[in-house]
């Protein structure tokens, strides 16, 4: 098998800027147009059958990245290569025509919002089959829906198929959302914080379900989360985002148990540990202040105003990406040998 066959998704220097809406008067007075730099030049690649984690705090640009990858938003700049083909400049129509809708799916964070309250589970899960004209046969549609409901453990399927979302618990709703994403046998699924709204006790079973589809259907995932402890259990490799940029990349085990970038260290040391004795001893690395606005991010390294190790150069120049170990890279001046 040739090497590049291994990579399914390649993101190369991707940007997504949202124009800031301002009143007419403001535009006149201030002149230049402002942008929310939600994603500001990120690169990573996802291998087939991999679970690639994108982690970071609120507002770092994770969801925006996910939406660009599933074609909900158009990139401002940069390249996305999917299975060898550049898909970054495809129009929505092209996207559908090339069958990408069937191959690329997304699971959203909030299962209370992502299901239409007026549709039954059957209609919700059947929708991808109908809109992609997989089949017109009502029987076949119903059979496929019931089968996937069994797979996501909503049993008895014939019972759940006719319920409305408000008759389901949060965990069951998320199973419906997963069934909808999986009913077309996609190759690549963006899972945007699929368990963050759920109770701790049922999170593990939802994660098991995602694993099941990787094992049995060869699904590749981009798993978006702010929870590094969970990331460690599901992910293979990880990228840590801060203010639209990736600050550290590597295998999940390396990055989470041995973080190198000051931001990653702060993040990891803030995670509560389910171990009281360890918790009492542990030292935290604290960042000063609050996350700055993505409209006017700090010059140089974006973390420098908050970083306990900031040096002169950090406020002047953007740090390069340094490989500190095969497959583990950090964008930080601390690791640049001079």
């Amino acid at each position: 098998m040739p090497r590049q066959d291994q990579v399914l998704v390649e993101v190369d220097n991707l940007y997504k800027w949202f124009p800031v809406r301002r009143s007419f008067l403001e535009t006149l007075l201030k002149g230049e147009r402002l942008f929310v730099k939600a994603v500001d030049g990120i690169s990573f690649s996802i291998k087939k059958r991999e679970i690639y984690v994108l982690a970071g705090e609120s507002g770092s640009g994770k969801t925006t990245t996910g939406k660009v990858l599933v074609g909900l938003e158009k990139p401002t700049r940069g390249r996305i290569v999917y299975d060898g083909a550049d898909i970054s400049s495809l129009s929505l129509k092209e996207w559908r025509r090339q069958g990408l809708r069937k191959k690329i799916q997304m699971i959203f964070q909030d299962p209370y919002e992502s299901l239409n309250p007026r549709q039954r589970v059957l209609d919700i899960v059947a929708e991808p089959l109908i809109v992609n004209r997989v089949t017109r046969d009502k029987r076949e549609i119903e059979e496929r829906v019931l089968k996937i409901l069994e797979e996501v453990k909503l049993t008895p399927a014939t019972e759940f198929a006719y319920r409305y979302p408000h008759q389901l618990s949060g965990g069951q709703r998320q199973r419906v959302a997963i069934a909808r994403a999986m009913v077309l046998d996609p190759e690549f699924v963006v899972a945007d914080e699929p368990v963050s709204m759920l109770d701790a006790s049922i999170r593990a079973s939802i994660l098991d379900l995602l694993m099941y589809f990787r094992e049995h259907k060869n699904v590749t995932y981009l798993y978006i989360t702010h929870d590094l402890a969970t990331a460690r259990y599901v992910g293979d490799r990880i990228a840590i985002m801060y203010l639209g940029k990736i600050v550290e990349k590597g295998s999940v085990e390396d990055v989470v148990t041995n973080p190198q970038h000051p931001y990653t260290q702060a993040l990891v040391s803030s995670i509560p540990v389910p171990d009281p004795k360890y918790a009492r001893e542990k030292k935290r690395i604290e960042l000063k202040g609050e996350i700055p606005s993505p409209i006017n991010p700090p010059k140089g390294c974006r973390l420098h105003p908050r970083c306990p190790f900031a040096m002169d150069i950090c406020s002047r120049e953007e740090p390069p990406e340094v490989e500190i170990k095969p497959g583990h890279t950090v964008s930080c001046w601390l690791y640049v040998k001079r």
Binding site: R203, A204, L207, V273, P274
Partner: peptide
């Protein structure tokens, strides 16, 4: 069922 980022990686057991 609770994951931890420290110590050896144990299997999560779903309730």
């Amino acid at each position: 069922a609770v994951p931890s980022h420290i110590g050896p990686k144990k299997r999560l057991i779903a309730l």
